[in-house]
């Protein structure tokens, strides 16, 4: 079982909508993969299912050969699009929390990154700006030595400096046993750091290929291709 994530015939149907239709994917380790698609294309549904936050209607997903559950949650580090931390907690308490629940959490790594951003251990999330909050969440997620990092819109709504910081953190964290799955709209900003991209539309995979292959074959950037593919 070499691939990290495998989905077979994954379907998710809501009352009047087919959020995911027959999704078959195989994602290898050691890659930075972009999950791209317009709103409603099924990106968040797919991510929720991988994380065990939602149950598929049919089909299955295996992470490291296992169904979503306690064991897979141990090896997945997830950064959702929203602030998912209790805003009343201080940074120090957040570190305690992550240390307690995640064996693979590297506190020292997190402390260094926080220090570099001049974030004090006693700061409460509530007092931070949106950009700083996002960086804190990112630091917590990236300080885990997980096998799969799932980042949902990590650079949406932050200033360019923060964006660069985030991208460099992702690259700097790379190791060939782990995979990063990045879901985003802002393709041109992250294109260069992706190995491969998955295009989702109406719950189905339009295509899944490596960035350089696409550029070579199509003679254009992923961003341009995306605009063409989704032009309705």
């Amino acid at each position: 079982m070499s691939c990290l994530i495998e989905t077979r015939g994954l379907n998710k149907k809501f009352k009047n909508k087919m959020a995911l239709g027959d999704v078959n994917l195989q994602l290898e380790r050691g890659r930075i993969i972009g999950l791209l698609g317009p709103n409603g294309s099924g990106k968040s549904t797919l991510i929720k299912i991988i994380n065990g936050l939602m149950v598929p209607t049919s089909g299955e997903v295996l992470i490291n050969g296992q169904k979503p559950g306690v064991e897979t949650k141990k090896i997945i580090s997830y950064l959702p699009e929203r602030t998912y931390l209790n805003e009343w907690m201080r940074v120090r308490e957040l570190l305690d929390y992550f240390c307690d629940f995640y064996e693979d959490f590297r506190r020292d790594r997190a402390e260094v990154m926080l220090k570099n951003l001049n974030i004090s251990m006693d700061d409460k999330l509530k007092t931070m700006s949106k950009g700083t909050k996002e960086k804190v969440q990112l630091i917590l997620v990236m300080s885990r030595e997980a096998q799969l990092y799932i980042l949902d819109e990590p650079i949406g709504g932050v200033d360019p400096a923060a964006r660069d910081y985030i991208l460099k953190t992702i690259i700097g964290n790379y190791n060939e046993n782990a995979t990063v799955l990045l879901s985003t709209h802002l393709i041109s900003d992250i294109e260069n750091i992706l190995d491969e991209v998955i295009f989702l539309q109406y719950g189905q995979i339009r295509f899944h290929a490596s960035v350089d292959d696409i550029r070579m074959k199509e003679g254009k950037s992923i961003d341009q291709l995306f605009r063409e593919v989704y032009r309705c």
């Binding site: 930075i32 460099k168 690259i171 750091i193 960035v211």
Partner: peptide, 17 residues
Amino acid sequence: VRELATEAAVNPNTMQK
């Protein structure tokens, strides 16, 4: 590799290639 990739802001696998 990783340092170069970070500096260039590109994927480490691509830099390795």
